[in-house]
């Protein structure tokens, strides 16, 4: 499941920040901010909004505060949110 979520997150990243992603290997350890993809505040909020819409989870506001947020951490957060939503 995490691979599937990861693939979707990477596709969303390409949508909101294609220039930053082009020609890069988007490993789980790649940071979204300055030293990694260098997403600015608007792109970061757009990505979290896209995750909210695509996965039907609450807007992950807690991740706004994470200075060293990585792709893997975002995938993990989504996975946890989806698991918490699952019946039974």
């Amino acid at each position: 499941m995490s691979d599937e979520i990861g693939a979707i997150v990477r596709a969303l990243l390409h949508e909101v920040a294609s220039a930053a992603c082009t020609g890069r290997e988007l490993h789980d350890t790649v940071r979204l901010d300055g030293p990694g993809l260098g997403l600015d505040s608007v792109a970061r909020v757009e990505l979290l909004l896209a995750c909210e819409e695509r996965f039907g989870i609450p807007f992950p506001a807690a991740l706004l505060d994470e200075a060293d947020l990585t792709i893997g951490r975002l995938v993990e957060h989504i996975q946890t949110a989806l698991a918490g939503r699952a019946p039974g």
């Binding site: 901010d33 300055g34 600015d40 505040s41 608007v42 970061r44 909020v45 979290l48 506001a61 706004l64 505060d65 200075a67």
Partner: peptide, 10 residues
């Protein structure tokens, strides 16, 4: 900072 701007935008 970028982090503060992200938080403010959120």
């Amino acid at each position: 900072t970028a982090a503060e701007r992200t938080r403010a935008l959120g």
